[in-house]
């Protein structure tokens, strides 16, 4: 028992569940009734613009900020009441990693590990540093570490106590493409090999698309959408490159087909089965078709679409 916190778990056994989480600073409500459930084994992406509330949410999860209303569960521990117990099963990185610069990487890990309140074998530090690839520089002072090495040290400190959940705030911010790739691979490896649930917030949507299996889009403190990445990227539409735009547009008008244009393509909301019939009809009207392909959308497009109030519009339409 830690300072009156009872070691009892509740019914919820999701890795992380936010229930009506609200945070107000003065008159400014920065988190508005956030509800979210992250299952064990997920690599979950938390997307949002600057000031959307991502970091504030992560700070609430780590007990740095107290919610004004609502609560959350971490592997069944009801927080903020049982926050210290919850933090025993999770590790993370809030904002930019910061260390005691005059101490070595090893000393930093030992100090931060000592705050876990558990006796961990000495090998835990070695193990974590090896896992993130900084073992060779562990005995150098942190002040000489590069940004990427500090990020890795940040992930290492989160891993030392063998957490079941790690929460990473912008883990690839400020890294070069190679660094971004290696952190991505590391995260996926941790999830796959050690079955660690990962929650990460990021601006780099292409990375989130490659790394995460589920995402949530947060905007001005509200969660607008939560779904598996595959589902978000699925777009039942086909894009046509057409040689006779006027005729095509006239045809779409007659048939009452809503369309959009992007990069010279006409995007039609039709399924794969409807494509042959559409081609036949357009052929009958002498509409020249150069190219037909299923439309691939990116997480960036989904994100922009969602934060613009759900309107089905694209930037260059």
């Amino acid at each position: 028992m830690i300072f009156g916190e009872k070691e009892e778990t509740t019914i919820s056994q999701a890795a992380l569940e936010l229930v009506n989480l609200t945070k107000t600073f003065g008159e400014n409500t920065v988190l508005k009734n956030l509800c979210l459930k992250i299952e064990k084994g997920d690599i979950f992406g938390f997307l949002g613009n600057n000031g959307a509330g991502k970091t504030t949410t992560i700070r609430v999860i780590f007990g740095l900020i107290r919610p004004t209303k609502g609560f959350f569960h971490v592997f069944g521990f009801k927080c903020p009441l049982q926050i210290t117990l919850a933090k025993r099963v999770m590790g993370g990185l809030v904002d930019i990693p910061a260390f005691y610069e005059t101490l070595t990487g090893r000393e930093n890990l030992e100090i931060l590990t000592a705050f876990t309140g558990r006796t961990l074998p000495k090998s835990a530090v070695e193990e974590a540093s090896r896992l993130v690839g900084i073992h060779d520089i562990l005995d150098y002072p942190v002040r000489i570490y590069s940004n990427g090495q500090k990020r890795r040290l940040g992930i290492a400190q989160a891993l030392v106590p063998h957490p079941r959940l790690i929460v990473l705030d912008e883990p690839t911010a400020g890294l070069d493409p190679e660094g971004v790739k290696s952190i991505r691979e590391l995260i996926m490896d941790l999830n796959r090999r050690l079955n660690i649930t990962v929650v990460l917030s990021s601006h780099v949507l292409s990375e989130v698309q490659k790394t995460c299996n589920r995402v949530s889009i947060i905007h001005y403190g509200s969660i607008l959408k939560t779904a598996p990445v595959e589902e978000l990227l699925f777009d039942a539409s086909y894009q046509f490159k057409i040689s006779t735009p006027e005729q095509a547009e006239k045809f779409f008008l007659e048939k009452n087909i809503t369309y959009q244009t992007r990069n010279g393509y006409y995007i039609l909301p039709i399924s794969r089965e409807e494509v042959p019939e559409m081609v036949r009809e357009m052929g009958l009207r002498n509409i020249g078709i150069y190219e037909i392909s299923p439309r691939q959308i990116t997480l960036e497009e989904v994100f922009l679409q969602t934060v613009k109030g759900g309107k089905n519009e694209y930037p260059d339409t």
Binding site: L64, R88, V94, D95
Partner: peptide, 18 residues
Amino acid sequence: IRGTLRMVLSKPVTRQQF
């Protein structure tokens, strides 16, 4: 200001202990 406070407080240590 250095940011090490949030690093430490994200560990299972109570504020009183720190």
